[in-house]
Amino acid sequence: MTWVEFQYAAAGAIVCWGIGSILSVFSAKQRSSKTLGTAFLMAGTAVMVFFLIAFWVTIDRPPLRTLGETRLWYATLIPIVGFLVEYRWKVSWLKYYCVALASFFLAINILFPDVYDKTLMPALQSVWFVPHVVVYLVGYVLLAASSAAAWHNLYRNKRSMNKEGHAVSHYLALLGFVFLTFGLVFGAIWAKEAWGHYWTWDPKETWALIAWLGYLGYMHANAAKVNENKLQWYLAMAFLVLLVSWFGVNYLPSAQSSVHVY
């Protein structure tokens, strides 16, 4: 499977998610169509899981090198977080945000097609490559879901505060922050091995730090019992900073001399 087949897989997944969401949202009272809706939602994700594995096998290296490749992972994993949250906390709305976000990532990949390239430059051939990138990926996925939950909470809070929703966005942020921390430290240890220093204030590093500080701020604001509605705003917006650190950096004036831009 390559980027040529990708378009069909992606279109298939988006259609499945779309049908699944419509069935689940609009026929919540009918059990049979609800089950069918869930089946479609799962099928969309199954298509992506299958494509991802086949793609990995074809290119013969972990597909974690280009932004297009990492978007594949987000599109596959974010809905899974949505399903897990529903299973764990019986909160069903998060998965709709998740499939919408995943469809958005797939759409970017369809609109801006990638060229696939089997090569892996020497600096990336390290035992740290996979843990560092995967840990960040999972962190981003959780924080994307946390932000989606926060937006939903803000909307609901206009009528009444919902404690349950706050717990969801909070735990997702907390878990996401744990992964960001692992990613940052793994990255530093790897940089020492590849480039001789664990921290060089490279723009990508700087932005990873800014995003981490952003969520660190949330952790402390939460510990200091800042007002709930403000905390939800904070989580909703913090993800925007994360987006910059993830693919905005390449376009900044500071990035011209970066060794990290890919």
């Binding site: 204030w201 723009p203 700087t206 932005w207 730090l209 800014i210 500080l213 952003g214 660190l216 701020g217 402390h220 604001a221 510990a223 200091a224 950096v249 900044l252 004036p253 500071s254 011209q256 001399s257």
Partner: peptide, 24 residues
Amino acid sequence: IPLGLCLIIAMAILSFFGGVMPQG
């Protein structure tokens, strides 16, 4: 914590300058 939080935000904002302006 309040001062810690304010300093974390201050550091994030300073890093923001460092992350946007070319360094060197």
